[in-house]
C-alpha cells in the first residue's frame, strides 16, 4: 500500500512533466495539423540550457541555488522560445502548403539535427548536477516503508497546474487565443479576415517551447541528470499523452500526461521496469489504432 502511494506520487510528478511537453505537441497539431516530431528534442535542449545557466549562475556569479534556479528557468524559457521560433521559421513555415508528409519528415530531420547538435557541442555523456532542495514531507511513517513527498514534487505539480490555468485563460479569452482557434478552423479564411497566420503560428511555437523549457528545467531539478539522447523517449511519451488525451485539447494533454506518468511508474513497479517503455509505446499504438480522437478530442470526420 505504501509503495503504491509512493508510486502514485512519483507518477503524478512525472506525468506533470509529460503534460507540459504534451501541450506543445497538442497546440502545434491543433493549429497546423502537424506532428512536431522535434518537440522532444526541444525539451532536451531546454534542459541543457537550464543546466548551463544554472552552473553559470552558481559557479561564476556565486548565486544561491534557489534564486539561481528561478533565473535559469526564466532565461531557459526565453532562449528555448527563441530556438523554437527559429526552427519554425527555417524548417516548417515554407511547408504549410506542401504535400502532407513533408512537415513530418522535416521535423524528423530537425529532431535528428538537434539531438546530434547537443551531442557534438556538449558530448554524449550523462550530465548530472548535485541534488538540490531535497527536503521531504513524510506522509506515512512507521510502516514498512515511509511515503514521502518532496518540495520539488509539490513545486512541479503546482507549476503545471498554474501554467495550465494561465494558458487556458490565454486560449479562451485573449485575441491570440481567438486567432489560434480561427487558424485551427481554417487558416486561409483566417488570413482573409486579417489574422496574421504566420505570427499566430510562430507564437504557438514560442509558447510551446516556453512550456517545454519549464518541463526541461523541472525535469533537471527532479532527476538531476540529462543527456543528449534524452529527447526521444520523453518526446514520444509526451506525444502519447497528447494523443491519449485527445490531440488538440489542452486539458486532454495534461490528463494524458498524468495517465502516462502513472501507467509508466506503476507498470515499472508491479510488472517489469525493463519493459516500462513498452507500456508507453503500447498505449500509443493502441490509442492511435482504436481511438484516434483520444479521451477528450473531437472525432475526425473523413471529408470526401
Amino acid at each position: 500500500m505504501e509503495i503504491f502511494l509512493q508510486q502514485l506520487i512519483n507518477g503524478v510528478t512525472l506525468g506533470s512533466i509529460y503534460g507540459l511537453i504534451a501541450i506543445g505537441y497538442t497546440m502545434v497539431f491543433g493549429i497546423i495539423g502537424m506532428v512536431n516530431f522535434a518537440h522532444g528534442d526541444v525539451f532536451m535542449l531546454s534542459a541543457f540550457i537550464a543546466l548551463l545557466l544554472l552552473l553559470l549562475l552558481t559557479q561564476m556569479l556565486g548565486l544561491a541555488a534557489a534564486p539561481a534556479f528561478v533565473v535559469a528557468l526564466v532565461a531557459a524559457m526565453a532562449l528555448t522560445a527563441l530556438w523554437n521560433f527559429a526552427i519554425e521559421r527555417v524548417a516548417y513555415r515554407r511547408l504549410r502548403g506542401s504535400f502532407r508528409l513533408a512537415p513530418l519528415i522535416s521535423a524528423i530531420g530537425m529532431s535528428t539535427f538537434l539531438a546530434n547538435f547537443v551531442t557534438v557541442t556538449q558530448g554524449p555523456n550523462n550530465k548530472s548536477i548535485p541534488p538540490m532542495w531535497d527536503e521531504v514531507i513524510k506522509i506515512t511513517s512507521g510502516g514498512a516503508y515511509d511515503v514521502t513527498l518532496s518540495y520539488k514534487q509539490i513545486l512541479i505539480v503546482v507549476v503545471t497546474g498554474a501554467l495550465l490555468a494561465a494558458f487556458w485563460f490565454v486560449v479562451q479569452k485573449t485575441s491570440l487565443g481567438r486567432a489560434q482557434r480561427a487558424c485551427e478552423q481554417d487558416a486561409k479564411m483566417a488570413a482573409l479576415l486579417g489574422v496574421d497566420v504566420n505570427r499566430t503560428v510562430a507564437l504557438t511555437f514560442v509558447i510551446g517551447a516556453a512550456l517545454a523549457a519549464v518541463a526541461g528545467s523541472l525535469y533537471l531539478l527532479q532527476y538531476g541528470v540529462v543527456k543528449s539522447s534524452d529527447g526521444f523517449v520523453p518526446g514520444v511519451k509526451a506525444f502519447t499523452a497528447a494523443v491519449l488525451g485527445g490531440i488538440g485539447s489542452l486539458p486532454g494533454a495534461v490528463l494524458g500526461g498524468l495517465l502516462i506518468g502513472l501507467i509508466e511508474t506503476l507498470w515499472g513497479q508491479y510488472f517489469s521496469s525493463d519493459y516500462k517503455d513498452v507500456a508507453a509505446f503500447s498505449v500509443l499504438a493502441i490509442t492511435l489504432i482504436f481511438m484516434p480522437s483520444g479521451l477528450m478530442g473531437r472525432p475526425d470526420v473523413e471529408k470526401v
Partner: peptide, 13 residues
C-alpha cells in the same frame, strides 16, 4: 547525423 538532419530539412524545403 547532424548533417543528415539538416539535409532532410533542406530537402523538404
Amino acid at each position: 547525423m547532424l548533417l543528415v538532419g539538416l539535409a532532410m530539412v533542406a530537402m523538404m524545403n
